[in-house]
Computed example of a mutant assay.
Amino acid sequence: MMTIHKEGRSLLLYLLVILIAANIGIRHFFPSVALAADITLLLSGVLFLLVLQFFRRPKIKVCQDEQCVLAPADGKVVVIENTYEDEYFKEERKQVSIFMSPLNVHNNRFPISGLVKMFKYHAGKYLVAWHPKASTENERTTMVIERENGVEVLVRQIAGAMARRIRWYVEEGDTAEQGNEFGFIKFGSRVDIFLPKDAKVVVDLQQKTKGGKTIIARLPE
């Protein structure tokens, strides 16, 4: 079953009104140019459907597993590497990054269950999402989830060149439930996950992921 995400309902309504007005205006002011009216109607329909599919919100069945890290978003794996995380951990971690194109579902889901130990919003630039500096210079949020056994995973929402609005529905101290929605990024973006060095990554570069379903790594006991 598919629904429309709450982040898109107002935008879709405004867009529909604008497109209807544009089509009425074309037919009123250029009644003799039938081709222009037909082209405007066709382009309006295509544009509305593209925006509509961007805000789709499919219902999924989450298979929770405390030893697994689930993909926080639909998209494609663009980074798997050991890297120094300098905002919270101040040490080397395994990083997995998922790029979301405008055609992907853009709601973000908790990759693990636990306590939201830290959450912070950062204003920033709008470099393309795959830019090496996007993780540290773009508009972004940083969230750290701690499992009961003390294992911590950092999740970072990153705005891209097209994405100009990050939404989140979580605060420090909240309980994260694996697979539940915690945020949304509009129009193309990226999510970084920083895992313990002894976590076992089970996805490959360029592999497509489904938020709340694809297992991207297995955590240590």
Score class of each variant (00 low, 15 high):
I4C: 00
I4L: 09
H5A: 15
K6I: 10
S10H: 06
L11Y: 10
L13S: 08
Y14I: 14
Y14W: 13
L15A: 11
L15T: 05
L16M: 05
I20C: 08
N23T: 08
N23S: 06
G25F: 15
R27H: 09
H28P: 00
S32V: 11
S32T: 13
S32N: 15
V33T: 12
V33M: 11
I39M: 12
S44N: 10
L49G: 01
V51T: 03
Q53D: 06
R57I: 01
P58H: 09
P58V: 10
P58W: 04
K61M: 06
V62E: 02
C63N: 09
C63I: 15
A71P: 02
P72V: 12
P72A: 14
K76T: 14
V79E: 03
I80E: 03
E81L: 05
T83W: 07
Y84T: 02
Y84R: 12
E85V: 03
E85K: 01
D86K: 08
E91F: 00
E92T: 09
E92Y: 10
R93D: 02
R93H: 03
K94W: 06
K94F: 06
F99I: 01
F99V: 03
M100A: 03
S101K: 01
S101C: 09
S101D: 05
P102F: 05
L103P: 00
V105R: 09
H106Y: 08
N107C: 04
N108G: 07
P111Y: 03
S113E: 07
H122K: 06
A123N: 14
L127I: 03
V128Q: 02
A129N: 01
W130F: 05
H131E: 10
K133M: 12
S135G: 05
S135Y: 00
N138C: 07
N138H: 02
E139Q: 14
T142K: 02
T142P: 00
V144S: 05
E146G: 02
V151D: 06
V151K: 07
E152V: 07
V153T: 15
L154V: 14
R167N: 10
R167Y: 08
R167F: 14
W168R: 09
V170E: 03
E171I: 11
G173R: 12
T175F: 10
T175E: 15
G179Q: 00
I185T: 02
K186M: 10
K186I: 14
K186R: 15
K186G: 13
S189F: 06
R190S: 00
V191Y: 05
F194E: 06
F194C: 07
L195I: 13
A199L: 10
A199Q: 09
K200N: 09
V202C: 15
L205Q: 09
K210L: 13
G211F: 10
T214F: 04
I215M: 12
A217L: 11
R218N: 11
E221T: 04
